[in-house]
């Protein structure tokens, strides 16, 4: 049977992707941030999954305002890279996992999670920056990917409760898949940041750190945090953190914390990153 072996959370700042693409990771500004991912890259070499389910949001890159799915799943066999206005990132095309993805999408819909099914999808920095952070700059990505875009841009976003229970449903669905697959779930975005208005540049380190603690130890209470609190305390774009709850829900009741990293700033954003494994 397929099994979920780890959860990864990480910010997905576009400027981080640009720093990788322009070989600026050794510069004084970026070095401390990339140093925080060295452990993870090594860990990932030893724990490369067959499939990573990557929970992220599209940033007006593929979806316009014509269609705004709350939860969607890419079930195609490949996903091209979006041009987000600066030209597409020069990273390898992302390979899909259609067999597991069709099983997952169908299972989730039957479990009352009304996923939008995407046979065609182009992916943006929300998905590719975490891959660059975890895998570096290979010619071909070492894992297949099931993209799971979530609307976190337009209010109302899905609730925290809904996100955590979607994660739980993903866990059940993966375990019911016939096929011996090592699967990881990645929750991306955050941490505190606001990139608009007179309050832009907001960072709230104590709140971010508490969020990481609660994600590990107390997700059942964390799920009730209202959108308003994310927006006030972690900035209008900090609400992306609800996507970490989906990852956490997929890991089961108790987890081991393998690694944690926190750094300010990357561009306008607080960078947070965790590796968690289910406690069996």
């Amino acid at each position: 049977m397929a099994r979920i072996t780890a959860g990864i959370s990480t910010s997905h700042v576009p400027a981080v992707g640009a720093a990788v693409d322009m070989q600026r990771t050794e510069e004084a500004y970026w070095k401390p941030m990339f140093a925080g991912y060295e452990f993870s890259k090594k860990w990932m070499k030893d724990n490369t999954p067959d499939v990573a389910i990557i929970i992220y949001n599209d940033h007006a890159s593929y979806f316009g305002m014509e269609i705004m799915p709350t939860f969607a799943m890419g079930i195609g066999d490949r996903f091209e890279i979006c041009d987000e206005g600066y030209g597409a990132r020069p990273v390898p095309v992302v390979e899909g996992a259609p067999e597991l993805a069709t099983h997952l999408a169908a299972s989730l819909i039957l479990d009352d999670f009304d996923m939008t099914v995407l046979n065609v999808l182009e992916v943006d920095h929300g998905l590719t920056v975490p891959m660059s952070l975890m895998f570096g700059t290979p010619d071909k990505w070492p894992t297949k990917v099931i993209p799971l875009p979530v609307n976190v841009v337009m209010y109302p976003q899905p609730s925290g409760e809904r996100c955590l229970s979607l994660g739980k449903a993903i866990r059940r669905a993966v375990e019911q898949f016939d096929g011996d697959l090592n699967v990881q779930v990645w929750g991306t975005g955050g941490m505190s940041h606001q990139i608009q208005g007179a309050r832009a540049g907001l960072i709230n380190e104590p709140w971010d750190r508490k969020f990481m603690d609660d994600l590990v130890n107390d997700p059942e209470n964390l799920q009730y945090k209202p959108h308003l609190e994310y927006m006030v305390e972690a900035g209008s774009e900090g609400v992306e953190l609800i996507m970490w709850l989906i990852m956490r829900g997929a890991l089961g009741e108790k987890v081991d914390e393998v690694y944690r990293f926190y750094h300010v700033p990357a561009s306008n954003t607080a960078v947070g990153h965790m590796i968690l494994t289910p406690k069996e």
Binding site: A60, S61, G64, M65, E66, M68, C82, D83, E84, G85, V153, M154, Y155, P156, Q194, Q196, G197, A198, R199, A200, M231, V232, S236
Partner: peptide, 26 residues
Amino acid sequence: IPGTTIFTIEKARQGFWLNQFCMSLR
């Protein structure tokens, strides 16, 4: 919330064509 504009479904309606124009710049 000071200095902050939350992008709600209502704002999305108001800004539809502005945002669609932006999308064309991809």
